[in-house]
Write a protein that binds this DNA or RNA. Structure first.
Lengths: 199, 199
DNA sequence: ATAGTGAACACAAAATTGACTATTCAATAT
DNA sequence: ATATTGAATAGTCAATTTTGTGTTCACTAT
């Protein structure tokens, strides 16, 4: 019957919520399946009726997290009343800011996403492809509007994402001061814009 | 007297050569000071008359290594008979290729450089600054020749180096296929060139 | 049939131990 | 004086055991 399926979905949600709360507070690796189960008033064994394993729970949460990042970027790109150049700058800015907020406001969650990414390369590639698709659409918009001149939007989108690496990989956030990163991001944005704008 | 100082320098060289050979064959961490000393027919204790510690030996070698990389880039930039655009493309290509050869031909040495870099941030920043200076000079050349139009060569050089991160940090060399990286590098080079060329 | 459990198992993390190695220093040789 | 050493020290690394945790499964309840 329907309600059973709905219950299943509710239970999954409950598990994800409990897990997220634990992960936020003490981190992914130090949270046990028994703890998550207890928060849901069930046994650890029963979790495996809803998720394949612990990594599967982490992956679900990490996907949500990365999804929100792409959504933030999509929102910027979707403002079709704005010039494409402004939206491209916003796209880069959104990526930069999301990473920054993630690292400062939710370090444990960020750590979890990192851990999951290491073990779920396909998910990383999917996320990268999702960003690339959003960016590609923006580039085509810009070309259609005569703002941009770009031969191959796909390759160009990939190149732009590659150039943004420094601002998305956390190693460098601890290596450089934040102000320095902000300036680097501005400079990179200018460079990229000049690279795609019609001359 | 003079010869003493010369001997000191020679001894230092001998130690560095012995260390480099060991590091190349078995890696930095698995090479002992005793082994290096034995290769130089001296005791381990005596090494400390020529180097502060093991890391100091590694740092000297890593500096040489990074220096050669900058030299390769300088060589490309120095061909003043060539157009600046060509030299800029060559600059990026040289960085990419040097990293690739380092990883494939001298993995142990590369591993050593990595290890030293983690513990010698100042050295990393110096190396980064050296590359930036070379690039900055090239940009000024290009501006003087009317090929490039760049407001702030310093910031632009920093931005270009930031955009090249993906090709200089080894994490990604194992994450993506080599062919994919080559294509990304080409795309990024095009983007950067379009970003600095006079329009 | 579906949701759930406790106990067993296998694997991985943590703690312990022991061996090894970097580094120092007083003593020696040149 | 300067270069060198052997022996002592302190700290790191690797192998070991122990503990804890993820996962499975036969079984129970609804």
């Amino acid at each position: 019957m329907e309600s059973a399926a709905a219950d299943t979905e509710e239970t999954r949600e409950a598990i994800l919520n409990a897990a997220q709360e634990r992960f936020r507070q003490v981190g992914y690796s130090k949270t046990t399946m028994a703890e998550i189960a207890k928060d849901c008033s069930m046994s650890a064994a029963n979790l495996y009726r809803y998720f394949e394993n612990k990594l599967d729970i982490g992956t679900s949460l990490a996907c949500q997290c990365l999804g929100r990042k792409v959504d933030a970027m999509k929102t910027v790109v979707a403002r079709k009343d704005r010039p494409a150049a402004e939206r491209l700058a916003g796209f880069i800015q959104a990526a930069f800011q999301h990473t920054h907020e993630q690292i400062t406001a939710q370090p444990r969650i960020h750590e979890m996403v990192e851990a999951v990414c290491l073990q779920q390369q396909p998910m990383v590639h999917e996320h990268q492809a999702a960003k690339q698709a959003v960016l590609e659409e923006l580039l085509r918009d810009g070309v259609a509007a005569g703002e941009f001149s770009v031969d191959d939007p796909g390759k160009t989108a990939a190149a732009i994402l590659a150039a943004m690496t420094l601002f998305e990989v956390p190693i460098f956030w601890h290596l450089y001061e934040h102000q320095h990163l902000v300036e680097l991001a501005e400079g990179t944005t200018r460079l990229i814009l000049r690279g795609v704008l019609t001359r």
